[in-house]
Design a protein around this nucleic acid. Structure first.
Length: 468
RNA sequence: GUCCCCUUCGUCUAGUGGCCUAGGACGCCGGCCUCUCACGCCGGAAACAGGGGUUCGACUCCCCUAGGGGACGCCA
């Protein structure tokens, strides 16, 4: 039987990092077994579901390059089918009408809590005659779940998990307004969609037991479950808005590459020996549930950055240039010149940057000449009297040069400092400040070369006090 | 409160009874390289939560304790 996995987010918010990893694992599992990866939007909570959230989730998945098979399913469109399943259970005597009011239920929970019992519905309408039904109360439909014995989930990540049936109450299938609950919808949809493997956060572990009961009541075979541990914030606490529970678009804005984020997320909770850099092809080849860890992990931006830098170095130049251009916000006028400079300078720039934003800042001088006074205090200090004097003389020495290759430029600089008996740094640092506006940059001869003779000499003469 | 799950360096993890004087990666510290910043290279500090068993031998198996997480909705 072909493997079918699914990612089933509820569109009540953006796609966060935990959801992204769940989607990734489902995607990888399907790819590994040459199966299908489906997407189902669980929008049955009309009050909280928004079209914006649906778009954010879809965009997030697309950005991460996690493509889904078939068309996306929308749970809200299948409510009739869900209700039908509940009614058939009712006819078979496997479900019943319950007339308890929300108030009574709340009272029940209070009492249970007081007496130290587990807080669950006591099943008082389970065998009660419908003729006793109170007037004017719309009943809910509950599953007539087994009273004793146990439900066992052979979880592919957590191992066998046994839950006493006495711990599970008769779950509501249909609300008093006739709409299906999450439990019912999930089970019916997973069955109808042919889902064979349910991979999701372990906050659903106890749901798996209830859902198994439902599958069995419907005479369906439950899917294989794999409950992956949750991701926590850097402080070990549950993910919240303050740390890490950001939308996937935030990671995009922070300058991470999709391939890098996938690699990082993959290693959170999953491993393959000592492998760290795992491109998607290898991930597909290696991924399986047995290598997923059981304990929750924390998000670590340092590591993410490091992985990102790796992918930055390997990224296609053209792609990177476009990504940078949009971040530099430069006009179109000089676009071709800037593109060429960026393409030439990218190689050594990616050795220095950990994300696209840093990269853009480091590359900025290829698009714009420094403006005075220099913002960078250390750089400004390099342009003191001595520094400017050296620059002026060196510019004069450069003027008659025919070639502008790195080697020639370096030779000229070495001859220059040797003649004056000064260290190379005495010349290189002021040069750097004048050319890039900064005290840190790629090798100065590379910068000189990429900028070109005309632009370089223009920048040198633009230094305040130069040429006297 | 009840039930379920988890626990190896700061973080992500390798480890499936002897290969472990516990390995790797990120981060951190030191050094080398050097026109700056990086990269790279070399070296370093850093962990089996605690206590009982089982065993010739436990990071690995069992029990207890502690800590962490999750679930207990007519939310998903």
């Amino acid at each position: 039987m072909a493997v079918v996995t699914r990612f089933a987010p509820s569109p009540t918010g953006f796609l966060h990092i935990g959801g992204a990893r769940t989607a990734l694992f489902n995607w990888l599992y399907a790819k590994h077994f040459d199966g299908e990866f489906l997407l189902r939007i669980e929008d049955t909570d009309r009050k909280r579901s928004t079209p914006e959230a649906i778009d954010a989730i879809l965009d997030g998945l697309r950005w991460l390059e996690l493509d889904w098979d078939r068309d996306a399913y929308f749970q809200s469109q299948r409510a009739e089918r869900h209700a039908a399943a509940a009614h058939s259970l009712l006819e078979q005597g496997r479900a019943y009408r319950c007339y308890c009011t929300p108030e009574e239920l709340a009272e029940m929970r209070e009492a249970a809590k007081r007496e130290g019992r587990s807080m669950r519905y006591d099943g008082c309408w389970r065998d009660r005659d419908p003729s006793e039904a109170p007037e004017g109360v719309d009943p809910v439909i509950r599953l007539k779940a087994p009273l004793d014995g146990e439900t066992v989930i052979d979880d592919q990540v957590q191992g066998p998990v046994r839950v006493e049936n006495s711990q599970l109450d008769d779950m509501i299938l249909l609300r008093s307004d006739g709409t299906p609950t999450y439990m019912l919808s999930v089970v019916v949809d997973d069955h109808d969609m042919g889902v064979t493997h349910v991979i999701r956060g372990d906050d659903h572990l106890t749901n798996a037991a209830r859902q198994t009961q439902l599958f069995l009541a419907l005479d369906w075979t439950p899917p294989v479950f794999g409950h992956i541990p949750l991701i926590h914030g850097a402080d070990g606490q549950k993910l919240s808005k303050r740390h890490g529970a950001l939308g996937i678009d935030a990671y995009q804005e922070m300058g991470y590459l999709p391939a890098a984020l996938r690699n990082y997320l993959l290693r959170l909770g999953w491993s393959h020996g000592d492998e760290e850099i795992i491109p998607t092809e290898k991930a597909v080849a290696w991924f399986d549930l047995d290598a997923v860890g059981k304990s929750p992990s924390r998000i670590d931006f340092d590591k993410l950055e490091s992985v990102n830098q790796h992918y930055l170095r390997e990224a296609d130049t053209e792609t990177l240039v476009e990504l940078l251009l949009s971040r530099l916000g430069t006009g179109d006028d000089a676009a071709d010149t800037v593109r060429a400079r960026l393409a030439a300078g990218l190689g050594s720039l990616t050795e220095r940057a950990k994300n696209l934003n840093e990269l853009a800042e480091m590359a900025r001088f290829y698009a714009q000449a420094p403006s005075y006074p220099l913002e960078n205090a250390k750089a400004a200090k390099l342009l003191n009297d001595d520094g400017v004097a050296h620059l002026t003389d060196f510019a004069a020495a450069l003027q008659p040069l025919d070639g502008w290759g790195e080697a020639e430029l370096e030779q000229a600089a070495r001859d220059f400092v040797a003649a004056r008996d000064i260290g190379l740094g005495k010349l290189a640092q002021p040069l750097r400040a004048a050319l890039t506006g900064s005290n840190a940059s790629p090798g100065i001869f590379e910068v000189l070369h990429i900028l070109g003779k005309e632009e370089a000499l223009t920048r040198l003469s633009a230094v305040p006090g130069a040429g006297q």
